[in-house]
Amino acid sequence: MYNFDVERPSTIQDAVKAMGREEAQPMSGGQTLIPTLKARLAAPSVLVSLTGIDEMKGVCLDDEGRVCIGGATTHATVAREAEAHYPALASLAARIGDPAVRNRGTIGGSIANNDPSACYPAGALGSGATIVTNNREIAADDYFQGMFETALEEGEIVTEVKFPVPTAAHYEKILQPASRFPLVAAFVAKFSDGVRVAITGASNDGVFRWAEAEQALSSNFSPDAVAGLSLDGSNMISDLHGTGAYRAHLCGVMTKRAVAAIG
């Protein structure tokens, strides 16, 4: 790891200011970024630690009944505190990485990084969440723009994520046994006005909504409704853990299982 300065702001305002320094990089729990720095795949001059910002921590409900999670809230905290409001989201958080990783890793870090195999992007896109930054609100549909690509601008920080709560939802994943990231996972959320299906781990373009499955499930919410659907594997991640065609197949399997779990 190359050396860097560390700033530890205690307010969002100070964090934004620190991000104005040359080659500054925000860091939340660091569970992805620190290994990335060790591999010298990133070499910022200044690391702005977001873990000391109390106004970016915690889980609460807003006036619209949305579950609002501060960007620097750990997975372990979401697993505990979102359980009563949005169990499917709490369950997603409770299954990221391992206990020690969940005590450090945060929702903001995961959403900002947008790893193509991460769990939270599926939860946010599948729920139709709103990503709140230090200067605007972005709909999840506009936010996730491709593998490790988001709508975030240079120096912009994810301060909060607001989740509308569906009537029922489930996150189903099959683990890649070495990394314990999802090989493929589906987040299915049933709202009164329709169904959303978000898939992670599969596409070269990162997390995506499976429109055909959403349509089919919106008119008939049963595993059979998606049984005849298939996705094209030619633009899916193909590696030693699975071919694109295999991942495309798993999209259907994970979606069906998620629907079956909701019942």
Binding site: V6, R8, G30, S49, T51, A76, A100, V101, N103, R104
Partner: peptide
Amino acid sequence: GEAVKACTMLAVE
């Protein structure tokens, strides 16, 4: 009081 991986946390934190 929380378990963390000390290889993936900065000392300054």
